[in-house]
């Protein structure tokens, strides 16, 4: 007997699960409304997104939007830094020589085996006490021209918070770099051995092989996982609120304390994170499909 499709006769399980989920939601809503007697009030939120600026006679971003911009800046800059770091470390990870391989292994294992929060605390004290003074970021707003400040404001946010943001970027980049390293390593190792042999047989050197044969192919394979790492990074960036980087989560905590509207504000901010993460995921998958079409 030939069947095209296996008959599916377990619909009752689906129905049961669906019923359980609906029941749970109804129950939670009921508890919140009758037992907690919580009065939902969302009306304050728009005011924390934008405020009316009397001087400029226009709307200006308030805490939540400022936090969102900082989060996006953090994510973009740290993925760029993490990509550079991860690229170098990933190449070292596949080196024939022991030393670079060990160095990169040490980095990856160190970061993957420490909780992110602990890592960020440890590195923050080092970075904020050593690296940011070294870059001279604390005095930048006094020393620079208005034009430079404007550009900096667009790229990295308000100059008075510059050293704060840069510390956050470096922490996140170091942290995510370890994951990018693994992505790059996997990309390089996915190139078949025959490609290297083909290149060797026409006399290419090790470096030329990397440059002209392995890397161009590895990069194509690395782009999709790198894109999803970027989305993870947007969400992970909330960790740096613990070291007082003024991004979305940090500022939300401030709003929550000053308004006492804990439920509403956190539910709303969860929605903001969801929207940007989901929009990025959607954008990347579209891009990927288009790239696949171009290749064919």
């Amino acid at each position: 007997m030939i069947r095209n499709k296996a008959p599916y006769d377990s619909y009752w399980i689906d129905a049961l699960v669906l019923f359980a989920v609906v029941f749970l939601i109804v129950y939670v809503v009921y508890r919140v409304n009758t037992v907690l007697v919580y009065n939902w009030d969302w009306s304050f939120i728009p005011g924390y997104l934008f405020r009316w600026d009397e001087e400029l006679q226009s709307y200006a971003p308030n805490l939540l939007m400022k936090g969102l911009f900082t989060t996006i800046r953090l994510a973009i800059w740290s993925i760029i830094l993490a990509a550079i770091l991860g690229f170098i470390m990933g190449v070292m990870r596949t080196s024939r020589r022991l030393f670079p391989r060990m160095l990169s292994r040490l980095y990856v294992e160190l970061i993957r085996n420490i909780p992110p929060v602990v890592f960020i605390f440890v590195f923050y004290f080092f970075i904020s006490s050593q690296i940011t003074p070294l870059l001279g970021l604390d005095n930048i707003s006094e020393d620079s021209s208005p034009m430079t400040l404007k550009v900096l404001d667009f790229l990295l946010g308000p100059p008075e918070l510059l050293s704060n943001v840069v510390a956050g970027i470096i922490c996140l980049a170091l942290f995510e770099g370890a994951y990018v390293t693994e992505i790059v390593r996997a990309g390089i190792q996915s190139i078949p051995k025959g490609q290297v042999e083909g290149g060797m047989s026409i006399g290419l050197s090790r470096i030329q092989l990397m440059r002209y044969v392995v890397m161009p192919q590895a990069v194509q394979k690395v782009v999709p996982p790198l894109a999803s790492q970027f989305i993870i990074l947007i969400k992970d960036s909330s960790i740096v609120s613990l070291i007082s980087i003024q991004e979305l989560t940090f500022l939300t905590m401030e709003v929550a304390t000053s308004t006492q509207r804990v439920f509403e504000i956190w539910v709303f901010v969860a929605g903001m994170y969801f929207v940007i993460s989901y929009a990025c995921a959607f954008g990347f998958s579209r891009l990927e499909k288009r790239m696949a079409l171009h290749k064919a």
Binding site: G194, Q195, E197, G198, G199, M200, S201, I202, G203, Q217
Partner: peptide
């Protein structure tokens, strides 16, 4: 390697 060319079973062309 510059003097010796090689042809492989699996071609090993650069895709």
């Amino acid at each position: 390697r510059c003097e010796v060319g090689m042809v492989f079973q699996q071609f090993n062309l650069f895709p």
